[in-house]
Design a protein around this nucleic acid. Structure first.
Lengths: 110, 110
DNA sequence: ACAATAGGTGACTATATGGTCACCTGTCAA
DNA sequence: TTGACAGGTGACCATATAGTCACCTATTGT
């Protein structure tokens, strides 16, 4: 439908989210590299990377016979801005900070 | 699969994103209210709201025979924090601010 | 040159998903 | 109390999607 539709459909699959996690840790990976971390054939991973690229969540650069993949955070940020205004952002940040605080105290109680 | 899976699958559908848009504009709406804005039967809308509620993107409160729906921004924020660290956040914010600046100048050229 | 390597395409199957309908439950107002 | 109203359930069908495979192209190193 619209353009952002690609982004959300791309994020709907757990394998694709895991690929983004891998690229979040370290950019510029090749298909072979990414494939090795997944219990799936090369073709499946390639299809997923194609979807991510069409969505603009991953950008690529060719280097010889290799294709390097990079994470593009812009679409993620736009999702955030769509449903979180300045008012809600303050609320949510405070809430999550409080939660993180409680979690840390649970780990090492005084 | 995991818990956040519900969130991303919920966001994958354009109708559900539109429902979030409606709740972003104004909270506390009833099913009848939301249904009236969509070219779909009541049952379709109800299914979508159910998915959003299971994902935690929408929270509800009963009031007599009505059920009021509210937007919960927390899962959205968690998506953001998953793939945007402090470093990338500065980059992206600057980029989007620049883009917004160019757009505004395109609208009313000096 | 040529074998190995990295990536790519189109077709196919099983399953998941969106949407509708017939029918049911609980609540409000005259 | 009884009809209208808001919401809910389970089954059903058409389509979209994930994953695999046979087969193909381009680049590298020896």
């Amino acid at each position: 439908m619209t353009d952002d539709d690609h982004v959300f459909r791309a994020l709907a699959d757990p394998t694709r989210r895991f690929l983004l996690d891998l690229l979040f840790q370290r950019d510029g990976r090749t298909l072979k590299d990414l494939e090795s971390g997944l219990a799936m054939t090369r073709f499946g991973v390639m299809k997923h990377l194609r979807v991510l690229e069409d969505a603009g969540l991953v950008v690529t650069r060719r280097s010889g016979r290799e294709k390097l993949h990079y994470l593009n955070p812009v679409p993620i940020r736009l999702i955030h801005d769509r449903w979180i205004d300045k008012y809600r952002e303050r609320e949510v940040s405070a809430l999550l900070a409080l939660k993180a605080d409680l979690e840390s105290k649970k780990d090492k109680p005084s």
